[in-house]
Design a protein around this nucleic acid. Structure first.
Lengths: 218, 218
DNA sequence: TCGTCACTTTACCAATTGGTAAAAAAGCAA
DNA sequence: TTGCTTTTTTACCAATTGGTAAAGTGACGA
């Protein structure tokens, strides 16, 4: 029962930032290894499809050793998700209210597509979680994603009202951007069957640029 | 080669229609119950996340009884996927080469969105499978989806070349349509957080109509 | 050199889960 | 009803899996 305090602390801290990390070099290194391995395995098989043994093998550590660094399978998953959320929000956060509206939105789309290309595993991890009804991320969506989307939707609505872009429902626009960019990561297996010639991303970038430009300048 | 495959293992027959169903009334009823229950459970938890016990409970049958009707968990999943593939292809198949290009494409989008609304579980089942790399559907994608997409992509390319719609990459257009329509089913949990007011589909339909109309008439 | 603390391994376990054997029950044609 | 087939239940099982206890290893300061 020596872990009681630590467990309780971790539990309460689920939605908050960790209070005092103060980790040793070994801890930092091994936690990173574990999270990297977990990302690989969770994104490929989903939460229940992944096993601690797989993660341990991928990380080059023993299973009990992994449980020395994390309180359990779920804790690893939640940690991954929370970390990723910040990365995921970043491209939208960068949308600048002072910038040129069309260019800001198109740049956002480019960043999202770049992320789908550079971080397909992260995209799939999120997709898996949302698909299952966001059982471990509901609070986080409410607390971090919703305020940001509300804010940026208002910004876009303002641009539209001012006639600086064509009239468009900001929230549905955002959904469309997410859907069309993440599709190339989440549905990669299908895309690869239908476009066997390597390198779909240049074509995707060009197509999305065209599509959203026409939508917003109509 | 195809004849050889047919006479080969039962494995090869996986992608074909069953030869002689000849099922009793009880078999028909219980198989349907099982598949309905399996759709519910698989779409909510993914293949590995679903258990036979859950499916059995949902179907109102005992686990061994379920295994009397299907050769195993995987067989149920594959059966579901194969059945669904036909339903899923149908809206695209309906796209009429003789019709008015813009109207045909917009009607296709409407049908896809209607399906996302009417059959969200089916959409999620597919999404789950593709996300995991289509381990049980790869051959089917190759055999059924690819030829159809090739054919319709050529049709759309023809329309574009003839100047009847604006220039567009047909395959990326199809990806965008899939992504934007299925998003409302697959990411429902997220959409519900961000648009709490019930009934997102009318707004979605309007937005997608606007978006693709502007894209194709630019 | 010793003691202490951080880290790692070995040896387990209890619960879950996909699946089976075989008996029992229910249909059903004659 | 009889006799056969189809369907369902009961009682299991072996493998997997998340997790734990406890002994062992190693680094480092006093």
């Amino acid at each position: 029962m020596k872990d009681a305090a630590r467990t309780a602390t971790a539990r309460a801290a689920k939605v908050r930032a960790e209070p005092a990390p103060k980790r040793s070099r070994i801890q930092t290194r091994n936690r990173k290894r574990i999270l990297e391995a977990a990302l690989e395995v969770f994104s490929a098989h989903g939460f229940r499809g992944a096993t601690l043994d797989q993660i341990a093998a991928e990380a080059g550590l023993s299973k009990p050793n992994i449980l020395y660094y994390f309180d359990g399978k779920e804790a690893i998953h939640v940690t991954l998700l929370n970390q990723l959320m910040e990365t995921w929000l970043d491209p939208l956060e960068q949308m600048n209210p002072e910038g040129e509206p069309l260019e800001e939105i198109l740049a956002y789309i480019r960043r999202k597509l770049d992320m789908a290309q550079a971080y397909p595993r992260e995209s799939r991890l999120f997709a898996n979680e949302i698909l299952q009804g966001a059982p471990r991320m509901g609070p986080h969506l409410e607390a971090r994603l919703k305020p940001l989307v509300d804010q940026k939707a208002a910004l876009i609505a303002g641009w539209a009202e001012a006639g600086r872009i064509a009239a468009v429902d900001p929230r549905h626009l955002i959904f469309s951007i997410w859907a069309t960019t993440q599709h190339y990561a989440d549905f990669e297996a299908q895309v690869n069957v239908l476009m066997p010639e390597g390198g779909v991303f240049p074509g995707a970038a060009s197509h999305l640029e065209t599509m959203y430009r026409r939508l917003l300048t109509a």
